[in-house]
Design a protein around this nucleic acid. Structure first.
Lengths: 349, 349
DNA sequence: CTCACGCGCGAGAGCGCTCTCACGGAGCTC
DNA sequence: GAGCTCCGTGAGAGCGCTCTCGCGCGTGAG
């Protein structure tokens, strides 16, 4: 029952079609330079035998694997607490599938895993890597770069996003934050606070920068540090109410944080948005739509980010292949992309 | 820069260590039957050259890939709306990593993808598959079984979970539901309603069965059908209030549904849990902890489910290998596992 | 009609590894 | 000390594929 039926080889197909192995290979790989009649005959033989190329044998000679590693650095359970990761993965998957590439998933947890991932990538098992590492001082990105594997990062890597040759895809965190704060200002709010995310992540730092762009000389007491969690949001909101009872708007670094803040506000008897307007970030649906009141927030197109990452990487790989080894790149090195965000108005602001 | 340094081969290591290729191979694969002195020398050469075995070449001869496909049938965006999927994946990843297996992720979307996945699995690119297909009439599981790849399912597959040789890992949905309903009954509630999940999924069907186990001759009007979403929960709750204004408890098929129900109850002016107790399922943290009041719910150990799935599959693969082709299985075919659930008491019931 | 050219195809080498098999030498028995 | 076993090692075949090379044939030019 578990007896693996002996899978047909190129040889077998060749025999059946009455041609040579080489011809079958050509047909299987596109069929250029083979007469139509023969192509037909080979295709038929392939179908009849249910032939599927042996990827291992193919890789052995081509040195391509048609496989991409997706590395998720995940001390951050945050990644798992929201659909962010899954959506991005879906985008990546779609794009890779469309180009017949496999997705090899590597979840890392702690230091030892870094070494393992480094070894794996350096081992040349995959053609490229898509890396999510959202922390500032994460050694992983460097490690990976050193492994010499073509890589695209998800989110601006902490350690110098503009280092030569580093390609990443990110949301316009800073611009989105600006939009949010401007929206609050447009509502006539003047005491606009910010609850930050975990500031060792570039997204949090960028959102804070966006806030500061608009609130040029904001009262520093209007900024409370948190960590992207609801609990952090609660704590920060209490601090804020304590320090500045006259606060009339809050821009929270993400929806989870905002939900925590909302709870504290409700407890304190303030009405949202009448007494105080609240705005989040992410448009993480199960949260943003379920809060009371529903959350106004900044949406990023997460799936598109994933798709784009994959697209950039595949393009880079293609470049490497098609131009042979003929000297330096023929022009367009893919460069980083920052995707726009949009403000989603609900009831909280 | 992108110039791939020519990676060292077995041959190179052999030369450096002054032994034959065969010996290096033996050392790399465990080192049995090689004198310690030589093992040492080879190890040193491996380190110095930074040798990493070429997996493609190895697979070509061993017919093992040390790779497992994880197939997520995902018409259900539900899978993406909660951390369920990510947690399971993490469990799987941990277990596979511990056994030096790769995780190849296949997300499917629609019919064409089924064929693609079927072809991929039949193509013998991976040693086994872990499949999530939660819908009753999904053709995918059958397709996969036919591909002849060793498979473990996540959640009881719809079409005959007890068909010979089908192995799955599931939560005790029915038992968990019973616990929930009994808990409500223990609180003195008598008009206990149930909001179902999407009944084309076995988990929803099982939870409904569990409810019925306890509420043997329940008023059929106390059962409202929904679909695991908050919106569905709202709709169903309105129906229930309409049909049975005296309802004093609700067991919702999952936390999302419960959150929708809670909102409707709040609007209707009922106090939870005083007027009506509410209980969910999943213990999906960002939801269950954030509702007002925090949700009493049934927790399942999702990560452990993933880990277990991987463990069962690897065990089966080992079995296939170690016993050579010597006739039928030597006893222990892995069989399906149903994991216990636990009731988590918060404020809503 | 002859020759050059090019296109379509087959022959064969070789990718890096594992694994079988045969061989040499150490240790044993008698 | 002759013959045996047995362990550690090397030689070599071959996994299934791609790709280069060269041959034969058809075509167009001279």
């Amino acid at each position: 029952m578990t007896d693996t039926a002996p899978r047909p080889t190129l040889e077998a197909v060749a025999a059946r079609a009455g041609v040579s192995r080489a011809t079958v290979s050509r047909v299987v790989n596109g069929g250029d330079g083979v007469r139509d009649a023969l192509v037909e005959r080979v295709r038929k033989a392939v179908d009849e035998l249910g032939y599927v190329p042996n990827q291992a044998a193919r890789s052995l000679v081509t040195r391509r694997h048609d496989a991409i590693a997706v590395v998720v650095a995940e001390p951050e359970t945050r990644v798992f607490a929201d659909p962010f990761f899954a959506l991005q993965l879906r985008g990546i998957s779609k794009e890779l599938t469309a180009h017949d590439n496999q997705l090899v998933l590597l979840l890392t947890e702690g230091r030892d895993d870094h070494a393992r991932v480094g070894r794996y990538l350096a081992g040349g098992h995959v053609d490229g890597a898509l890396v999510f590492s959202l922390h500032l001082h994460d050694p992983l990105p460097e490690l990976i770069q050193r492994a010499g594997v073509p890589t695209v990062f998800g989110g601006r890597p902490g350690w110098s996003g503009d280092r030569q040759g580093v390609v990443y895809v990110d949301s316009d965190n800073r611009g989105g934050a600006r939009d949010a704060v401007r929206h609050l200002a447009g509502l006539g709010r003047t005491r606009i606070a910010h609850i930050t995310g975990a500031l060792d992540q570039t997204s949090a730092a960028d959102r804070l920068d966006g806030y500061r762009d608009v609130m040029v000389d904001a009262d520093p007491r209007l900024i409370a540090e948190a960590d992207f969690t609801p609990a952090g949001g609660e704590r920060a909101m209490r601090e804020l109410l304590d320090r500045c009872p006259d606060v009339d708007a809050v821009f929270a670094a993400n929806d989870l944080t905002a939900s925590g803040a909302l709870r504290v506000l409700r407890e304190s008897g303030r009405r949202v948005p009448d007494d105080i307007a609240v705005i989040g970030f992410d448009d993480m649906l199960p949260v943003a739509e379920q809060t009371d009141p529903p959350l106004t927030t900044v949406r990023q197109d997460i799936e598109e980010m994933g798709r784009l990452m994959a697209r950039l990487l595949l393009r880079e790989l293609d470049r490497g292949t098609s131009h042979g080894g003929s000297g330096e790149a023929t022009g367009d090195t893919p460069s980083s992309v920052v995707l726009p965000t949009t403000l989603v108005r609900r009831a909280s602001a």
